[in-house]
Design a protein around this nucleic acid. Structure first.
Length: 1045
RNA sequence: GGGCGUAUAGCUCAGCUUGGUUAGAGCGCUUCCCUGAUAAGGAAGAGGUCCCAGGUUCAAGUCCUGGUACGCCCA
């Protein structure tokens, strides 16, 4: 049953933030979000994965960006009838959390943590995570991001951890989880290695001492009479110098300054030595130098085996330095490889905390970076320093604590992602990236350069590596996949064990028939593996009851979205884990956003004081405005600046224009007691204006749908904004009189139009559209859903889209634009009616009678005519249409165009309008041209106000007679009376009585047009001769008073 | 050092895929107009070496090559 209820009142003025709070309450009361998930059993699924924010620190405006996109498309797809699960998630583990807690407790490194107690420390980490989640939830709710925060996945939950274990054990069984001793970037403060993608985030430009050091040769042909010149930017590694590498392909030469002789690579002589050096003429191939011995620069530590000779290595380059490269295998991946090949010892005088062992002379106990200075000074004092320069370069730092990293040899667990590199590339090939360039650019490059995933972390707050090792036979290793498996191995029920350190560390077991006890490898894993596991771990797959079904119907995801910094973060870990475990990437479409910058174009930072926090922004401008900005202002793929100006413009231009159109509609529907249930004329029977605006609404529906299917919110937004502008400032403006009179066609048309627009805007601006839905649609129909977000996405009716009518309407608007310009040019006020406006004959012919009337009324002229009927008033001009001519004439184009311009335009015009073709002379030849090749403009000759532009011309007849003048006065009078009505606080439908007094032409005008005026100002009586005028207009010589009738 | 992106009005940005006549919008500024919904709307004006240099083409903001600046990423 359809009710005949009328609209709820819609105030013209609205406080959007207040409106939004009310809508939030409405959604909470009605359980709207839950209802949107209550789809039919057979509803197709559209899967979205929430990339978990690190629940560390407070949410910033940049968090709103991705969360807008994570909301818009699920809402859109839900309206299209899909079931879209949206499970919130929180990334709980990892170094960021540990660092924050350390800071809070005033700690400075791992010893402090161990003294405090791992159990207590991890409890603090858990607390910190829970605390920060609250702030994110508040922001998420306020911005209208519908995601299930009541049942989030949290990477620290036991079920989640067990899922991650299962994935790791799957990878282990494939032989892809292995331990290796490798040189890896290592943070001495945090006491852990960093993965490649963490490393990527911490490069900083710093200045290091760059030293050129003499290494005196002690064997070979140059023994005792020359030194090798060796360059390094890490003097601290010279303490453990083990060898010097030369490139076997290079030639090395001797150079002298008269006092000493140095050996360097031929191509680097000038760069390394500078002025004043001459070659002795002796040279050596790199291969000849193998195993020459030398005096090492420092004799501070013992070497357990012979060392300190020249080795050969292909990786030595001639770009920097001297072509002779110092080797210290504990501190360089290349060094390690080369030295291993020569069976050289790996000597490491530095403790895991980054300090030299206490018993090392000179630098004992010093931090490795600090030691640079002492060591350089010592080299200089002993005459070994050839040159020292400040060297500015980009050096990796810990991305959290900014400590310079060491490359450090440590045992570590790796996932051999290089073994599945081809699969990753193939999966990426099948993935749609938005923008497309990321796929084979930034991300594709990254995959091509894939290296093994350094997984283990010597830390505390993370998913424990589920590997137990036999303490008697370390080659015996077990990787468990669940607490259940651990229970069966230990023979104890461990199902309630907190699978975190230190509790898990205490679990040991023995295996029958094997000596020794299995103890857990103490590492935790990279938190990126946690987040990359969310497609299955969010359901506790495969252990939790029901998780298999949930997982299988939601893998892979159709859609994920994060900012561009996640290319090497979550986008990678998600694809890598999916491919490693299931041999299939976990997402099909990925939207990759640019970063949000402050209004000054810089990153927001406390330091610069340019931070805009999301909650205050939404309290001031509203969440809809912020959402619109994120989705529709500028390109989401590019970095964008956000500021108050941009947001208030969105409010004024888009949101309030839409709002006011609905308020207008409700006002006159109410005034005329119209309801949507009233019978509406058939579409074909409606005026052109109505058929046009409704047809364009259907065109908009198609275009917005297409744009959103391509994840192009910017295009959707600009289409909607343009339509809303046309609706308000052309359709409603031109149709006002019909609304005043309660015209059923106009009211039905605007109702239907607003219905479409409201649906189309709903995913982008869910609050204001919900308010409108409640007041205009839910209130008037029992058949419609109780929320716009439960409504069905509209399907465009192509049969209502009329291209020809749209072309006419564009032309009409164009003519009006030129007509207004002509009025301004002539200083002829719009209120003064004119006899006629004249347009080009072509334009006139294209316009229907209805549209000519619209134009005449809008321009306040009595008639619209064509130059054809104004006879010899008109001159013509002609010019070539290059776009067409170019296709036909190629190189001859400019000549033909010149010939057209030079021809008699009047003749061309008549030939073209007669036969459709005309001829011009080009280089003595006659060339035939058609209407499309020539642009003809018409110009009136005298006494007219004329504007012509781009081939269109509008002229106004400025001659006035008494009748026109009186009509002008009458309209002036109407205008001031309307203003008086408004300032008296009258309602638009209130009737009035009017008394007036005036003299001369104004009095004549009022007498002549009494009926018109009464009609316009809703006067029941008009009396001449006001004794006590409440309103006077001296310019018009008019005094009047009015009273509510 | 390498990769990617960006560069158009005082500001924020479209346009570049598919070359075409006088390069657009909004904000801001000046003047005027319109208003029976509007916090709105309209017209005109001022404001542009479309980053630079070559090239292709009848024709380049648009395509190609090289460079500069800035940003992000990598080493």
């Amino acid at each position: 049953m359809t009710s005949h209820a009328s609209y709820r009142p819609v105030p013209a003025h609205v406080d959007l933030p207040v409106l939004e709070r009310e809508i939030l309450d409405l959604w909470a009361d009605q359980g709207t979000f839950a209802a949107s998930l209550d789809t039919p059993q057979n509803a197709p699924r559209w899967t979205f994965y929430e990339g978990p924010p690190t629940a560390n620190g407070t949410p910033g405006t940049h968090h709103v960006e991705a969360r807008v996109f994570k909301d818009v498309f699920p809402r859109f797809k839900t309206m299209q009838g899909y079931h879209v699960d949206r499970k919130a998630g929180w990334d709980c583990h990892g170094l960021p959390v540990e660092i924050a807690v350390e800071k809070e407790l005033g700690f400075n490194g791992k010893p402090d943590i161990e003294a405090y107690g791992i159990a207590e420390f991890n409890a603090k980490c858990r607390e910190a995570v829970v605390r920060n989640v609250d702030l994110f939830e508040e922001m998420t709710d306020r911005m209208g991001y519908w995601v299930d925060m009541a049942h989030p996945y949290r990477t620290m939950e036991p079920a989640y951890v067990e899922s991650v274990w299962w994935a790791l054990s799957t990878i282990f069984k494939k032989g892809l989880l292995t331990e290796d001793f490798r040189v890896a970037p290592y943070c001495p403060r945090c006491g852990t290695t960093l993965s490649d993608h963490e490393l990527a985030q911490g490069y900083e430009t710093i200045t290091d001492p760059s030293v050129y050091v003499r290494f005196p040769l002690t064997s070979g042909p140059l023994a005792g009479r020359a030194s090798m010149l060796v360059w390094t930017t890490t003097p601290w590694t010279l303490v453990s110098n083990t060898a010097v590498a030369v490139n076997p392909e290079f030639t090395y030469v001797l150079a002298t300054d008269g006092t000493e002789t140095l050996l360097v690579a031929e191509s680097l002589v000038g760069k390394a030595l500078g002025e004043g050096w001459t070659l002795t003429g002796e040279s050596f191939a790199g291969t000849e130098m193998e195993r020459w011995t030398y005096d090492r620069p420092f004799s501070l530590i013992e070497f357990p085996a012979p060392a300190h000779f020249v080795v050969l290595a292909d990786y030595v380059t001639a770009e920097d330095g001297t072509g002779l490269v110092h080797q210290s295998p504990a501190f360089g991946a290349d060094d390690m490889e080369v030295c291993k090949a020569y069976d050289l010892p790996v000597v490491n005088p530095i403790r895991p905390d980054g300090h030299f062992e206490d018993d090392v002379p000179l630098v004992g106990g010093q931090f490795f970076k600090t030691a640079d200075r002492v060591l350089a000074d010592d080299l200089a004092a002993r005459g070994l320093m050839f040159n020292e320069l400040a060297y500015e370069h980009s050096y990796p730092h810990c991305w959290r604590c900014h400590t310079p990293l060491m490359y450090y040899a440590l045992p570590a667990w790796y996932i051999r992602t290089t073994a599945v590199k081809d699969r990753l590339l193939a999966e990426n090939e099948g993935t749609s990236w938005f923008p497309e360039t990321i796929k084979n650019g930034r991300y594709g490059d990254w995959l091509h350069n894939n290296i093994d995933w350094s997984l283990s972390r010597s830390r505390y707050w993370g998913t424990p590596l589920p590997i137990w090792r036999n303490d008697v036979d370390p080659s015996q290793v077990v990787c468990i996949e669940s607490l259940a498996e651990l229970s069966s191995l230990t023979g104890r029920d461990l199902s309630d064990l907190d699978p975190h350190r230190p509790y898990i560390d205490e679990i040991t077991f023995e295996v029958d028939g094997q000596p020794g006890t299995y103890r857990r490898v103490p590492d935790v894993i990279d938190a990126w593996f946690d987040s990359g596991s969310m497609p299955f771990a969010q359901w506790g797959y495969p252990h939790a009851p029901g998780s298999k079904e949930k997982f299988e119907q939601a893998y892979p995801a159709q859609y994920i979205c994060e900012a561009i910094d996640q290319t090497r973060g979550w986008f990678y870990s998600l694809m890598a884990v999916g491919t490693l475990v299931f041999d299939q990437s976990s997402y099909e479409n990925v939207v990759c956003l640019g970063h949000i910058l402050a209004e000054d174009g810089k990153k927001m930072s406390k330091h610069l004081g340019n931070i805009l926090l999301p909650m205050p922004l939404m309290d001031e401008h509203g969440a809809d405005a912020l959402r619109w900005f994120m989705a529709c202002s500028g390109s989401p793929w590019a970095p964008r600046r956000i500021g108050h100006t941009a947001l208030s413009e969105i409010v004024r231009k888009v949101l309030l224009t839409y709002w006011n159109t609905t308020a207008f509609h409700v006002l006159y529907a109410g005034a005329n007691e119209w309801t949507p249930a009233d019978p509406a004329p058939a579409f074909a029977d409606r005026p052109a204006m109505d058929r046009w605006i409704l047809g364009e609404a259907h065109r908009l529906t198609q275009q917005v749908t297409d744009a959103l299917e391509e994840f192009d919110t910017q295009r959707a937004g600009s289409l909607i904004a343009a339509y809303v502008d046309l609706l308000s400032n052309w359709y409603v403006r031109r149709s006002r009189r019909r609304f005043w009179s309660g015209d059923a066609s106009a009211l039905a048309t605007l109702h239907e139009t607003l219905h479409l627009v409201t649906l189309l805007m709903a995913p982008l601006t869910p609050f204001i559209t919900e308010r409108v839905w409640q007041d205009l649609f839910a209130a008037t129909s029992d058949e419609l859903p109780r929320s716009v977000h439960l409504a069905t996405w509209p399907v465009a009716d192509a049969s209502l889209v009329d291209d020809d009518l749209d072309r006419q309407m564009r032309l009409a608007r164009r003519v009006v634009e030129l007509g207004r310009a002509a009025r301004a040019e002539a200083k002829a006020k719009t209120r003064q009616p004119l006899r006629r406006a004249v347009v080009g004959s072509q334009a006139y012919a294209l316009l229907s009678e209805e549209l000519r009337a619209e134009i005449a009324e809008e321009l306040n002229v009595r008639a619209l005519e064509s130059f054809e009927t104004t006879g010899d008033l008109v001159d013509h001009s002609a010019k070539g249409n290059f776009r067409n001519l170019g296709k036909r004439f190629g190189k001859q184009t400019p000549v033909v165009a010149a010939a057209i311009a030079a021809a008699d335009a009047g003749r061309l015009a008549s030939e073209l309008s007669g036969t459709g073709t005309a001829t011009v002379e080009v280089d003595g030849e006659t060339v035939s041209v058609g209407s499309d090749d020539v642009i003809i403009a018409e110009h009136p000759r005298e006494g007219w106000s004329v504007v012509n532009d781009q081939g269109e011309t509008v002229a106004l007849d400025l001659e006035l007679d008494d009748d026109l003048r009186r009509a002008g006065f009458a309209r002036e009078a109407i205008r001031v009376i309307q203003e008086a009505r408004k300032s008296s606080g009258l309602d638009v439908s209130d009737r009035i009585t009017l008394t007036w007094s005036a003299e001369g032409p104004m009095a004549e005008a009022l007498r002549a047009h009494t009926e018109l005026i009464a009609d316009e100002v809703l006067a029941t009586t008009i009396t001449e001769g006001a004794e006590t005028a409440t309103f006077t207009d001296d310019d018009l010589g008019l005094a009047f008073s009015l009273a509510k009738a």
